[in-house]
């Protein structure tokens, strides 16, 4: 039973990281219908930013994280305004291709600048842990869960009660109508990118926490998080959270309990199996919006 709870905790912690990745995807998608394929690479940049600020410039860790969030959020907003806004009006496909290009550039630039060796994150937790009834809770994983919860709460408060949250929802519902009533749609797009950048820093830093490290392959996690986004519904932030945590638990449990006849790496397949099962019942995901169409 200890083993079960250990795996459950690891699954939830991994799922929180997936939830943060998925949130970055859905925030951008909901407003602009662009699937941001660079989200994983933003995570990579986030982790390196924190590492450079905390170990290179020796900032206190909390300050390093806040500075990294501010920097990457600003960077993403600027990228949206300088590049993506120029091609507004083009088919969404063009914007998606640009995000793929961005991810290629980042994935090549990071090892070119920092080399292929792993870096130290500079976090205060390291390998420290608490043990309860035989189950190990690494501090970095406890903080993963807490911070994810905090960020999600903040996001939902912002989305629900602030003017820009309302503007984001209005843009998501109908871009033209939103424009017509004076919603600053361009600013909303830039804002969604800034949010995507901010959550990427948090996702990246926890992904690189013990026993992981800051290394150029961190960005690959976005592909693992993909079933979570589809499962939850591409345009639904709550779906991203539920989907992310579900997929995290499924992956870790499958790797612990899948019988041998399912093949040696069923854990990598299991999330997709769950995703397909959900889509069979709910084609737009658990929380996705079913488009209303006139027939």
């Amino acid at each position: 039973m200890t083993a079960f709870f250990q795996l459950l905790f690891q699954g939830i912690a991994l799922g929180c990281i997936y939830a943060l990745v998925a949130l970055g995807f859905t925030v951008v998608y909901r407003a602009s219908k662009v699937i941001n394929f660079a989200q994983g690479s933003l995570l990579l940049v986030g982790a390196y930013l924190v590492s450079v600020l905390a170990t290179g410039l020796n900032l206190p860790f909390v300050l390093a994280v806040i500075a990294a969030i501010a920097l990457l959020a600003a960077g993403c907003a600027i990228f949206q305004m300088m590049v993506l806004q120029r091609v507004l009006g083009q088919p969404v496909f063009v914007l998606v291709m640009i995000t793929i290009g961005l991810s290629i550039v980042i994935d090549a630039a990071i090892p070119a600048i920092f080399g292929g060796n792993a870096r130290i994150l500079g976090d205060p937790w390291g390998a420290s842990a608490v043990h309860v009834g035989g189950v190990t809770f690494n501090w970095v994983r406890i903080w993963t869960v807490l911070c994810t919860a905090l960020i999600l709460a903040l996001y939902f408060v912002f989305d629900r009660f602030s003017r820009y949250g309302l503007a984001m929802r209005a843009t998501a519902a109908d871009e033209e109508a939103a424009l017509a009533v004076g919603v600053p749609v361009r600013r909303v797009y830039a804002l969604t990118w800034a949010i995507a950048g901010g959550v990427a820093v948090v996702g990246g830093l926890f992904l690189a926490g013990f026993p992981g490290s800051v290394n150029p392959s961190l960005g690959n996690v976005s592909l693992r998080a993909f079933p979570a986004i589809i499962l939850g519904g591409l345009d639904s932030p709550p779906g991203a959270v539920v989907g992310g945590i579900t997929i995290g638990i499924v992956e870790v449990m499958a790797s612990g309990y899948a019988p041998g006849w399912l093949g040696s790496d069923f854990s990598a397949v299991a999330p997709y199996v769950v995703m397909i099962l959900v889509l069979l019942c709910r084609p737009y995901g658990l929380f996705g919006t079913r488009p209303v169409e006139r027939v």
Binding site: Q6, L7, Q10, G11, A13, L14, I17, L207, G212, S217, N220, V221, L223, R224, E251, V252, S255, G256, Y257, S264, D265, S267, A268
Partner: peptide, 11 residues
């Protein structure tokens, strides 16, 4: 076994 890209190896 594990697969390249696995981040959690608890199991």
């Amino acid at each position: 076994t594990y697969k390249v890209g696995d981040t959690d190896l608890t199991a």
